Simulated scan of single mutants.
Amino acid sequence: MPGGERLALFAECVLAGLCTLVAAVPLVTLLPALGAGCAHVAAHLDGRSTALSTYPRRLLMSFRGGGLALGALLVLALAVLALDLVAVRRGLPGAVPVAVVCAAATLALLVVVLRAAAVWRPGGPCWPALLRDAAGRARTDLPGSLLLVGGLGMLAVTTWQLAPLVIPALGCLLMGGVAVERRLS
């Protein structure tokens, strides 16, 4: 891939990361925002339009098929896991095993969500079917799941070091999700 194409891909990842971050601010819109962001990166890779005006259309379409309701359930599940981790830090008996289970459950949930978002396309299958299929692929394609865990770790460390880097790091995570899913086909 020539340098100009690599720069264009990175620019689209930054744009997708920014749009996804803004769209996910209400939290319950996290799942549809991830789907729209991955679709935006995939559109660039497929040579389709990635004009800024296409992201809001993709986002609105991603609300269909249970995107908003499942996004709310996702936030609720992550909140419960976070509360469990807070309780563990308070010194409850058996804190280490509970912390390990909570961390593993959080990573597994995020990997499944990223895999589902990476294959979402406007007019495609609804979110429950995508999540169900993504859970199966997460189990059967462990190398791909570990790549996404590494991407999540990169996002966390990069953001921890310098908060404004969350935008390009999120875009790169979206691209990573699309790449992990495309390597299977």
Rank of each mutant, 00 (worst) to 15 (best):
L21I: 02
R183L: 11
E12S: 01
P164T: 13
A43L: 08
L170M: 02
V101F: 03
L109Q: 07
L109T: 13
H40Q: 13
L83H: 11
M61S: 09
T29F: 09
V100A: 08
T140S: 11
E181Y: 07
V41E: 04
D141K: 00
V113K: 01
V75A: 07
L170I: 01
V111N: 10
P32N: 01
D84R: 06
A33E: 12
G91L: 08
A103F: 05
L60R: 12
L59H: 07
V25N: 05
A43S: 12
P32K: 02
C13H: 07
C102K: 03
L78F: 09
S53W: 05
G171V: 13
M154Q: 04
A16N: 09
Y55E: 03
V157F: 14
L18A: 15
A95M: 06
P97W: 15
L114D: 00
V180W: 08
A43T: 14
L152Q: 09
A79Q: 13
V149Q: 08
T106P: 04
M175N: 06
V25L: 15
A108T: 15
D46L: 07
E12T: 04
L70C: 01
V14P: 08
L52C: 06
R58A: 11
V98W: 04
G65F: 11
C126N: 07
P122V: 08
C102L: 08
R132Q: 15
R132A: 10
V166S: 09
V96F: 11
T50M: 06
L73W: 07
L114M: 02
R58S: 10
A134E: 10
A24Y: 02
A105H: 13
R48Q: 13
P168R: 02
L184I: 02
M1Y: 14
L173Y: 00
R64L: 05
L76Q: 00
V112I: 15
V86F: 12
G150H: 07
L131C: 04
C172G: 07
M61R: 12
T159Q: 02
S145Q: 00
V166P: 03
A51W: 08
L21E: 07
R58K: 12
G4W: 13
G171Q: 15
G144T: 08
A118Q: 05
T140G: 04
G35W: 06
G124C: 03
T54A: 06
T54M: 03
L73I: 01
L68E: 04
L27T: 04
G136C: 10
G65P: 15
L110W: 05
G176F: 03
A103E: 11
V80T: 04
L165N: 04
P164A: 04
V98A: 11
L147M: 12
V25E: 14
M1Q: 13
C38N: 15
P2W: 14
G171R: 04
A179R: 09
L148T: 00
C13E: 09
P125V: 08
W127V: 02
L27R: 09
C102P: 03
V86K: 10
G123L: 09
A11S: 15
A51S: 10
L52W: 12
P97L: 01
L92D: 02
C13I: 07
V75M: 06
A118G: 03
A138P: 02
V178E: 05
W120H: 00
A8Q: 13
L9P: 01
R90C: 12
L45Q: 11
Y55D: 01
R182C: 00
